[in-house]
Design a protein around this nucleic acid. Structure first.
Lengths: 114, 114
DNA sequence: TGCTAACGTTAGCGTCAACTGACAAAAGGT
DNA sequence: ACCTTTTGTCAGTTGACGCTAACGTTAGCA
């Protein structure tokens, strides 16, 4: 059901960091160089570089080399795992509501747990 | 645009832990007691209790007391912040595609960056 | 009141993650 | 060849997180 469990896991861990989400929002609209991204924050370029590595290994950004610069851009497909998780949670929650209604209508069908 | 930034932040951090996502999937279909949830894992009840606290404070589960037991259930609304983030990322990425097409169609409008 | 069951809470420990500073690498210009 | 620009990488420190074990708390029952 889930395309790649380990990559989805990486994506969740990567997005747990607020700064990485901010970076992702930056490169969602424009393709930016590592230095330009770093200039937008109050931390060292080193920290940003490490964040970009995490985002790249999680499949959330793409890297393109242009001379000495490295251009980064958001990769929306990397969020597919999260979307599938959210959709699964939603449909399951809806199923619960439907099941409760059915159980009430059927009388007492013993909805046992695990 | 985002309903509550700090709660969304908590939700992201809470979901970063694979075990918490597993717990969430468990209580998405059924309302379970803390002990029943703990029985599904190989860690101590203490650890599960702490995970449940994190999930509750992030607004991802609801807690209901029934005698000495505490029943937990998934709270899909707690995922709204994540969904908004994902949707924003998607629409922004689509805007980029549209912009690139327009720029190409317009000829050479110098799409300079920052 | 005394006892038990079901949970939460605290203290302590080990591990991982984020940050900084110094160094190395790759590309381009003069 | 030399220097600058742009960036990644490595070592080390600090803070946060997940886990366990022991203790405290609440509800129900005799």
């Amino acid at each position: 059901m889930f395309e790649d469990e380990s990559e989805t896991d990486d994506a969740f861990r990567a997005l747990a960091e607020p700064r990485r989400r901010a970076i992702l929002r930056l490169v969602a609209t424009d393709e930016l160089a590592a230095g330009e991204i770093a200039a937008a924050f109050d931390v060292t370029r080193t920290a940003i570089s490490q964040h970009l590595t995490v985002l790249r290994e999680a499949g959330l950004v793409s890297e393109r080399r242009a001379g000495t610069r490295r251009m980064y851009r958001a990769r929306p497909e990397g969020l597919d795992g999260l979307r599938e998780f959210l959709d699964a949670m939603w449909s399951d929650a809806l199923d619960v509501g439907r099941r409760l209604v059915e159980a009430e209508a059927a009388g007492d069908e013993r909805t046992d747990v695990a």
